[in-house]
Design a protein around this nucleic acid. Structure first.
Lengths: 315, 315
DNA sequence: CTTCCGCTGTTTATGTCGTACACCAACTAC
DNA sequence: GTAGTTGGTGTACGACATAAACAGCGGAAG
């Protein structure tokens, strides 16, 4: 219902004038975010948002087309809060920051959006930068757990979301990755963070709903464990304490993923294409600055015209 | 509501006697699976299941405690179907199998549950085996897209799910990974497959609901693309065709993940602990068969007694 | 044979949700 | 003054899970 482009207008319009009293888009969005922060995504209903603001349910529909578009607006609003990050951090976070030094490095890193520490032999600066933005996304997800719960592939990005995407993609310029691989890496990391955040939310939600902690609940499933004796691998891992001191799921996964990306980057770096994609003649690498792709200005222009004629979609 | 242990009983009880007519647990579960296969998870309601079987809604509650437990039962039922895999595969699958040779290798691999191809210099057999089970999970998720939609961290595993878990864990025995790392790798891969399957489901669902294909929908968002000109990285990736020929999300991610795991395995293999964890004396490696952990039968026994005295939970 | 009970299926009702629709008061423009 | 727009309200619908009470049935015990 309704043209999605209206959502674009809503997301990208600037300089909202807030009326003295009464409702406004900004007030609705902020109230919805507060509500979702405390009650989770399924605790977020149009009725509750309206109640919190002291208006009737249907009044909201004068400002927001529907719940879905409200979610889009909430997401982009949340993507924009990075300045006040350090201030509100310690409220909910105590597990996620294992080493304060690391967290600080990440905070300074995300201020510029791209960290380059050239004196680090094995991995180039891209790895630190990519890790930094991943951790930043992680932090945002932890502060607003409902973010990971919002599903769907047709969420319009607002200015803040696009800026964030741009920042992630930018970390990988300078590597020899192909464009499609840059995009794939960023997507993969994004989905990873989302998935990890999602399982955390689900644990929290079920703990709050049932009043029983996750550990306790699984600990009480003796009737299940009785039946696991005949599975040798599970039994051996159990006996050797595999479940007693589990790995930190996010840290472990992040490291594996970055390692995997690193091998790809190395692979591409080794077999870096030394020929001009337009005429095929070998090109001498640029001594400094941005690595060159074309052998000459003429080839660069030819490639540009070719691209311009046959434009493709972003599907 | 209701003791979770009742769910365990429901899942693990064997030899269901099916009545001639009327309802039964098995019939309900199978009807629910069929329904979810076609309508998705949010198209699965108790009303529709009952309608499909020709009974009233509330009649289901005589056999299943509630919707959540029904989901648990559905999941385990689906985990059990591996024999008829090749038969039903070509119905919905055409994208997921890029190279038939690869798919065949995977199919034979999952038949035994553990593939070992000792003549492969860089990666040991664990990698092929792990890839095989990951692909198997992927196939199951593609055949029953609602699987990935089922969320929550307190789903009781039935016999089929446990067998599958056992199989995944078993692929990594023989590597020098620590127990907690084995578990973490399997969990990471599982969440990855789920996440990838989930985004595919979401695309399908929105395509069916709106009648507009994903590509088409994003292609029509010109009002959005107008505003992206000022983002240099996005613009450059766009112009160099990064979105024209995107990577296969699952294949790309799987390779990165396996690469990441491989570096960890290598790392652990290099610094493989050459000393007995009980007495610290160096132990000579076993010439063949399962790599030895203890220097002597005496130390092995001592470690066993120590474990037995201090048992820990599986939280 | 009767009485009772447990198993199964039905009926009715409660409370949640998003949102379509009709209505109305106040404000703005001509 | 009159017409049109904006913003808030009240009612209503159809979907959902499921609680609670009720009704037919078969078998067992008295």
């Amino acid at each position: 219902m309704g043209n999605p482009d209206d959502g674009v207008e809503l997301l990208w319009r600037e300089g909202e004038r807030e009326p003295r009293a009464g409702l406004s888009l900004g007030r609705i969005v902020r109230a919805a975010i507060e509500l979702a922060d405390t009650d989770g995504l399924d605790g977020l209903s149009m009725r509750k948002v309206a109640d919190r603001l002291g208006f009737t349910t249907m009044s909201l529909y004068r400002h927001v087309p529907g719940r879905d578009q409200l979610l889009d607006l909430m997401l982009d609003e949340v993507m924009g809060e990075r300045a006040t990050e350090r201030a509100t951090e310690q409220i909910t976070e105590q597990i996620t920051e294992p080493a304060p030094g690391q967290a600080t490095a990440q905070a300074t890193g995300q201020a510029t959006g791209q960290v380059t520490e050239p004196e680090q032999p094995p991995a180039a600066g891209w790895r630190a930068a990519l890790e930094a933005v991943a951790r930043q996304t992680w932090h945002t997800c932890r502060r607003h757990p409902w973010m990971a719960e919002v599903r769907g592939t047709r969420h319009l990005p607002g200015p803040n979301a696009v800026a964030h995407y741009e920042r992630m993609l930018a970390t990988l310029t300078g590597t020899a990755l192909r464009p499609s691989e840059v995009i794939a890496v960023v997507g993969l990391l994004g989905r990873f963070v989302d998935a990890e955040a999602l399982t955390l939310v689900e644990i929290q939600r079920e703990e709050r709903r049932s009043g029983v902690s996750e550990e306790e609940w699984w600990g009480n499933r003796d009737s299940l464990y009785e039946r696991l004796g005949q599975y040798p691998t599970i039994t051996r891992l159990w006996e050797t304490g595999g479940w007693d001191h589990p790995e930190d799921s996010f840290e472990f996964g992040l490291r594996r993923l970055l390692d995997g990306v690193e091998t790809l980057v190395r692979e591409r770096d080794e077999s870096r294409d030394e020929t001009c994609p337009e005429c095929g003649t070998p090109l001498e690498p640029a001594a400094s600055g941005r690595p060159r792709v074309y052998c000459s200005r003429a080839c660069q222009q030819r490639a540009y015209r070719r691209r311009k004629s046959g434009a493709g979609n972003c599907g």
